[in-house]
């Protein structure tokens, strides 16, 4: 099903690709069904403003998820993106707020620190052979403490819309005739297109998958495995930096100590979208669709009157089902 939406991917077997198209298609249907369901159940949900809100709250998760797709494809993971996002945003925001730097400089610094932590993660994993889970758990703790340390515990409000430097908020949302237009979604689509191309049509993408599929064989075939392995984490760090910008632009105040758990929305989204925890399988389009499953759950469940506990229970079950589909298909494939 939906084979035509699949792009050709060198370096992976055709059967993998078939399957991914399948899962992506199913998940897209699920997104549409969920949207129709919540719209039917709640008059508040089917308003334009709610759609804008869902998009607003999806940008930072989507950006983190696009990035984390790369470490996931190498068979690793990056748990530092959630607390990292807050850390980078705090430091960038501090430069703007307390040191009077232009917002553009704050944004560039924010992204650069993301890249630096990506390099650190990459080196820990690729050069020093730390298990990705452990390495990025450590940087998760480091970024959480470091962010709070740098700002001395104070929350950082990036300039509000209308204030000096508030222009950066209109990267994601502009007002036309009193109506909010969520243009951030276009940037997300553009980035998904670019990263899909990188993943499917460049050496970077092919080797990322190859590392996840069989690292030793990839090394033996003459690929500079260490470099490409590090680069997967650098891309992830870069996107965590971009996510930090998105977060700062949508929300009023960035609070130190927060951010733990954001990575689970992003990783969960990627997995729902068909990225395999064991590497090699998955793509960025799937990730984006998966993120919307998570975002719709987060927004939709409160709207149909389900309270906090139910929201968590249901989200947990959805993730289990998504992972089970992956495992089930893998077993079926290897069995025959």
């Amino acid at each position: 099903m939906a084979n035509k939406s699949v792009s050709k991917t060198a370096g992976t077997k055709k059967s993998f690709v078939d399957r991914m198209g399948g899962q992506q298609f199913i998940v897209l249907i699920i997104v549409i069904v969920m949207f129709i369901f919540f719209s039917a159940m709640s008059p508040g949900f089917r308003k334009y403003t709610t759609v804008v809100s869902i998009l607003d709250y999806s940008y930072y998760i989507a950006l983190m998820a696009i990035g984390v797709t790369f470490p996931l494809l190498t068979g690793g993971v990056d748990l530092s993106i959630g607390t990292g996002l807050i850390c980078y945003s705090l430091i960038g925001g501090l430069l703007v707020r307390q040191h009077g730097m232009p917002v553009a400089v704050g944004m560039i610094v924010t992204i650069l620190i993301g890249v630096i932590f990506g390099i650190i993660n990459g080196c820990l994993v690729a050069l020093m052979d730390l298990p990705p889970f452990l390495a990025t758990l450590c940087t998760c703790m480091i970024t959480r403490g470091f962010g709070a340390f740098v700002v001395g515990g104070y929350g950082i409000p990036w300039p509000a819309a209308g204030q000096d430097g508030g222009w950066f908020r209109s990267i994601f949302k502009i007002q036309v005739g009193g109506q909010n237009i969520p243009i951030g979604f276009l940037w997300i689509l553009l980035l998904v297109a670019i990263m899909s191309f990188v993943l499917n049509h460049t050496k970077m993408g092919r080797y990322t998958r190859a590392i996840g599929s069989n690292k030793e064989a990839t090394r033996l075939s003459g690929v500079n495995v260490k470099f490409y392995h590090i680069m997967a984490y650098v891309i992830c760090g870069l996107f965590a930096g971009l996510a930090a910008i998105a977060y700062s632009a949508i929300f009023a105040t960035v609070q130190p100590g927060s951010g733990a758990g954001f990575e689970m929305d992003a990783i969960g989204g990627a997995i729902v979208g068909g990225v395999s925890m064991s590497g090699a399988v998955g793509n960025v389009t799937g990730t984006l669709i998966g993120v919307f499953v998570i975002c719709l759950l987060k927004t939709g469940l409160p709207f149909i009157g389900l309270t906090a506990n139910w929201q968590q229970i249901i989200t947990g079950f959805v993730l289990i089902v998504a992972v089970l589909i992956d495992i089930f298909k893998r077993k079926k494939e290897s069995g025959k």
Binding site: M128, L130, A135, C138, M141, I142, R144, G145, F149, G257
Partner: peptide, 20 residues
Amino acid sequence: LLGGCMVAGLLAGCGGGKEA
């Protein structure tokens, strides 16, 4: 390395507030 990293992580994670 692992041990060092964990200690560093613990210090940063739990001690961030203290340092602050």
